[in-house]
Amino acid sequence: MSANEPTIVAFLCNWCTFTAADLAGTSRLSYPSNVKIIRMMCSGMVDPKYVIKAFLEGADGVLIGGCWPGDCHYINGNYKARRRVALLTEILKQFGIGEDRLWLRWVAASEGNMFQEVITDMTKQLKELGPSPLKGRLVA
């Protein structure tokens, strides 16, 4: 992908946001191809090191998608994700990764249109921000 095209690594919960991505496809709702989806069972299983790894490998943005509060398939995994992201955001700032590069969004299984909006908005914002400061510097 060319230099001005940001790469988004998306960790999506199987039950809500991954399904919403499927629905966006079934409904033929187009969005930028910058997002690359990794399927997780729950937003609560997204280990902070996966996010750090993605940034270290040069991702310009990371999206964690989970179920709406109260709707978690595993009772409360999304709340755990929220707590971890709050902490992780603080850590990432130390590496020059601002909070606008790590997005946590609740997208329900029926909200294909919302998934489209999130990806479109995030891509647009990352383009405005420019490439990640870690890009090309810390590749393992």
Partner: peptide
């Protein structure tokens, strides 16, 4: 597992 997810991230980012 970490190895599996890391490999997936590597794969996605390898185009860079």
């Amino acid at each position: 597992t970490d190895k599996q997810i890391f490999a997936e991230i590597d794969g996605i980012m390898a185009s860079g």
